[in-house]
């Protein structure tokens, strides 16, 4: 059991904001991926790899 788990104050609304943002982003990424799938189906281009090798 850690005593000092919350040594910085995340802010009263910070967690709630992150929940909302994550929700919005999940929706966006869903449509973005869908769009890529449709696009690549017609253009036969592979989706670019955007990961930065970490």
């Amino acid at each position: 059991m850690k005593i000092f788990l919350l040594y910085i104050d995340p802010g009263s609304g910070s967690y709630l904001v992150q929940m909302i943002i994550a929700g919005v982003l999940a929706g966006l990424f869903y449509f973005k991926n869908l769009w890529w799938k449709i696009k690549s189906f017609f253009t036969k281009n592979k989706k670019e790899d955007t990961t930065d090798n970490d």
Binding site: S12, G13, S14, I21
Partner: peptide, 21 residues
């Protein structure tokens, strides 16, 4: 959004217990 949530939201731990991923 953050500014409005911060100013409207009273300190509570409810949000903190909701699950993230």
């Amino acid at each position: 959004l953050q500014a409005s949530v911060n100013s409207n939201n009273k300190p509570t731990n409810k949000a903190a217990t909701a699950s993230f991923s």
